[in-house]
Every structure is written in structure tokens, then in C-alpha cells.
């Protein structure tokens, strides 16, 4: 495990290793995340507050450490989520594209294997996602939706904790070099 003296910033370019995944992992994991989002909340409303597609987007973008890959991963997962929601196509697509891009950019500078960094990034990107989605709803669709700062912060913390465990599990699906 990590001790308090562990570095959270990458010292050199060599440390920022790109994690590789088998193609089926890149396909099945996002699909399962989307299925989770549409299937599980009908049994537990609490589960509806978890944004699994977002967490998966953040994970793959962070670990791939490629802004282009992050952009496309975010766009595809976001569009798939749009297809299964009532929103116009592109709404979550744009938001998750930005999340993927910035997550990949962050992955180049931080040690994203560090649990604390993951917790922080999970919270930050959930907040970013919700805020940007709110902006899109108001600015592009003209819908008068509210943004509850306190609730978003609590849900961000919840998603961050779930992200910690989810990322740990997904680490096992990485290809070992």
C-alpha cells in the first residue's frame, strides 16, 4: 500500500506508463456500466445516484493517458448514455468528451495509481460532470433545472468512494507487461 511519503506527482516521463487493456475489456466494461445504469436503479433508488458510465470513462481515460483516446472513450460512452435516456443525442456526449479529455490530461501529470489521487479525481470529475451537464441543460436546451451544490458534493463523495473500489477492481483487468 501507499505510505504518506509516496509521491503523487510523476517525477519523469518514464513513470507515466500507459496501461493497456484487452479489446474486450474496453468494450464489455463500458457496456456493463451502461447496463448497470439502466437496470439496477429499478431495484434500489439509491443506486441511481451512482454514475457508473462516468466512473468508467474517468478510469480508462486516466489509465490510457492519451487525450485522444480519452476524448473518444468519453464521446462514445456519453452518446450511448444519451441513446438510452430522454435527452437529445450529444448532451452527455459532449460532457463526457470533456471529462475524458481532461482525465487523460491529468493522468499524464499525476500518479493515478495512488488511492488518494483517485478519490480526489473521482470527486472532482463527478462535480465537473454534473456542473457542466447543468450548464448544457440551461444554455443549450433552455431547461430550468436546478443545481444543488450540497447534494452534488455529497453525491460526488459517494461516487468517489465507489470509484476507489471500482478502479481497484478494474486494475486487475490491465494487461501485464
Amino acid at each position: 500500500m501507499y505510505s504518506s511519503s509516496d509521491r503523487i506527482l510523476l517525477g519523469s516521463q518514464r513513470e507515466s506508463r500507459i496501461s493497456k487493456f484487452r479489446p474486450w475489456v474496453l468494450f464489455v466494461v463500458p457496456l456493463l456500466a451502461i447496463l448497470f445504469q439502466i437496470y439496477i436503479p429499478q431495484f434500489s433508488k439509491f443506486m441511481a445516484y451512482l454514475d457508473m458510465p462516468l466512473l468508467v470513462t474517468v478510469y480508462f481515460s486516466l489509465m490510457r493517458r492519451s487525450a485522444v483516446a480519452g476524448t473518444f472513450i468519453g464521446a462514445l460512452i456519453g452518446l450511448a448514455q444519451d441513446c438510452l435516456s430522454k435527452n437529445p443525442l450529444g448532451l452527455y456526449g459532449i460532457v463526457k468528451t470533456l471529462v475524458g479529455y481532461f482525465a487523460a490530461s491529468v493522468g499524464l501529470r499525476f500518479d493515478v495509481d495512488h488511492p488518494f489521487i483517485r478519490l480526489l479525481l473521482g470527486f472532482f470529475f463527478f462535480f465537473f460532470h454534473q456542473f457542466f451537464a447543468w450548464v448544457m441543460f440551461r444554455a443549450l436546451l433552455g431547461q430550468q433545472v436546478g443545481f444543488d451544490l450540497q447534494q452534488t458534493a455529497v453525491l460526488g463523495a459517494l461516487n468517489a468512494v465507489v470509484a476507489l473500489f471500482l478502479f481497484h477492481f478494474l486494475d486487475r483487468l490491465r494487461e501485464t507487461s
Partner: peptide
């Protein structure tokens, strides 16, 4: 029969 919910946090759509 309801087989799923809409994607999105707090969605009020079912499949």
C-alpha cells in the same frame, strides 16, 4: 414489464 430504467442520474424514464 419494466426491464430497465433510463440512463442518467435520477432518471424518470423506464424501459
Amino acid at each position: 414489464r419494466v426491464i430497465g430504467a433510463g440512463a442518467g442520474v435520477g432518471s424518470k424514464v423506464v424501459l
